[in-house]
C-alpha cells in the first residue's frame, strides 16, 4: 500500500491540521507515514499546503512533485496543483470555493461543498474535516474510524469539546462521496 496527497488551501482553512490528522491516523493504523508542511519558496502565492505519505514500507521522499491525490480547498490551489496530479489520480474539490468545471478528465474528481456541509453542521471552519472525510472515503487509505479516533490526539485539549462535531463533519464528507461512488 502506498498513497501520497498534497492538501492545499488558504492559510486558516486548517489544511495543516487535517494533514496532521491523516498522517497520525495512518500511523495508528500501523502504516509508515510522513508529513511535511510547505516550506521555503513554495510558500509564495497565497496557498498553504502540506504533503502526507502513507505506506506499508519505509518512506523515501516526504516531498512529492507528482502526487497521486489532492485535497483542494480553494481555487488557487487547484490551478497550482492539478497540473501536477498523476494521470488517473484522485482529487477532492471543495466545490464551495472551487469551480468543478475546471476539473480535468484525466483524473478522478469528487466534488464536495465542504463549506456548506460544515455550515449545516454548525461551523464553516469544519470544512477541512468534511474534505478529509471525503478523501478517506474516496481513497480508503486509512479507516475512517481510525481518523475519528485520532482527533483527540491532534486537536489541542483546549478545543476537545469540538471533537464530536468534527467527527460528524468527517462522516458527512465521507457520506457525500459514498453517494457519488455508487
Amino acid at each position: 500500500m502506498y498513497q501520497d496527497v498534497i492538501i492545499a488551501g488558504f492559510g486558516g482553512q486548517g489544511v495543516m491540521l487535517i494533514g496532521n490528522l491523516l498522517a497520525y491516523a495512518g500511523m495508528e493504523a500501523g502504516s509508515e507515514v510522513t508529513y511535511i508542511p510547505v516550506y521555503g519558496p513554495e510558500m509564495r502565492g497565497g496557498t498553504a499546503n502540506c504533503t502526507v505519505v502513507i505506506s506499508s514500507e519505509d518512506i523515501g521522499s516526504p516531498i512529492i512533485q507528482s502526487p497521486k491525490s489532492l485535497i483542494i480547498m480553494n481555487q488557487p490551489s487547484l490551478d497550482k496543483f492539478q497540473p501536477k496530479l498523476v494521470d488517473g489520480g484522485v482529487q477532492i474539490l471543495n466545490s464551495s470555493l472551487v469551480d468543478p468545471e475546471k476539473a480535468e478528465d484525466r483524473v478522478t474528481t469528487y466534488t464536495v461543498p465542504a463549506n456548506e456541509i460544515a455550515d449545516g453542521l454548525g461551523n464553516t471552519r469544519m470544512a477541512n474535516m468534511v474534505a478529509l472525510g471525503a478523501y478517506v472515503q474516496a481513497t480508503g487509505c486509512v479507516p475512517l474510524e481510525q481518523v475519528k479516533k485520532s482527533l483527540s490526539s491532534v486537536i489541542s485539549s483546549r478545543y476537545s469539546h469540538l471533537i464530536p462535531k468534527n467527527a460528524e463533519a468527517l462522516q458527512a464528507g465521507a457520506d457525500h462521496v459514498a453517494a457519488q461512488m455508487k
Partner: peptide, 10 residues
C-alpha cells in the same frame, strides 16, 4: 537539514 527538522514522522 530543514527537511529533517520540519517534517513529522513516527
Amino acid at each position: 537539514d530543514a527537511i529533517v527538522g520540519q517534517m513529522k514522522e513516527p
